[in-house]
Design a protein around this nucleic acid. Structure first.
Length: 107
DNA sequence: AAGGTGACTTTTC
DNA sequence: TGAAAAGCCACCT
């Protein structure tokens, strides 16, 4: 495996994220799995942290509990929730989304 | 080069 | 049910 492979993984992950439709969410692990990196959920978060480009619906990625992951700078967290609610995603009283309802199921 | 870190997940109690 | 621990792996010091 060479250097270009790693960058290819990054590109693959971003490509998958772009496929998540409006009003739906996906988990870090799910994205990693679809990108062919089954045990690299953490890397998905790592990439989203460093790369915030256009056309990347980063806000549709939540953790396995259906909640918005905690981060150093919490400014983007409230923004993430606002955007999702704007797309019709409802949050429970425990600040989680119902994955059985909103989780993206690729066909 | 070796050890710490983190926008995670799964298992264990 | 839920908190805590263990597992994981690319990145950064």
């Amino acid at each position: 495996m060479n250097k270009s492979t790693d960058q290819g993984n990054r590109k693959r992950i971003l490509t998958i994220i772009k496929l998540v439709p409006t009003g739906r969410v996906a988990t870090y692990g799910q994205i990693a799995h679809l990108a062919g990196l089954p045990n690299n959920a953490r890397q998905v978060g790592s990439i989203l942290k460093s790369f915030s480009g256009p056309n990347i619906p980063w806000f549709r990625i939540v953790n396995s509990k259906g909640e918005i992951s905690q981060r150093r700078n919490e400014s983007s967290q409230s923004m993430q929730r606002d955007i999702l609610e704007g797309e019709g995603v409802r949050f429970t009283e425990s600040n989680r989304v119902d994955l059985s309802q909103y989780l993206w199921k690729p066909c």
